[in-house]
């Protein structure tokens, strides 16, 4: 799980071009939006696209549990862990 969290942090930095930030600078429980990391609504969309591409997730923006999962890295990792459909998961099982 900690490896998955680091992967997600790297994805956040890469997909959102957070040039001055290293993945390890993002706290597992740090809020991604508003007062936390300061990301905005376009970032949320961009991050959704990146997650869908990388983990072949099926995300529905109207799904309240998906919206709640975008709170921090911990919650995103849980979402990815529960829903990923890519080959990596198959290999792990």
């Amino acid at each position: 799980m900690s490896e998955l969290k680091l992967q997600i942090k790297q994805l956040i930095v890469d997909a959102l071009n957070l040039e001055d930030l290293r993945p390890e600078d993002i706290g597992d429980d740090q809020a991604l939006f508003d007062d936390g990391l300061g990301l905005d609504s376009i970032d949320a969309l961009e991050l959704g696209v990146a997650l869908r591409k990388k983990y072949l997730l099926k995300l529905d923006a109207g799904d309240a549990s998906v919206r709640a999962a975008f709170r921090c890295v911990n919650t995103l990792a849980e979402l990815v862990h529960a829903r990923r459909t890519d080959s990596e998961r198959t290999a792990n099982e």
Binding site: I42, E46, G48, V49, K53
Partner: peptide
Amino acid sequence: AEPLSPTAFG
């Protein structure tokens, strides 16, 4: 058939 980047689109 991949989703588009909203940043790139905008």
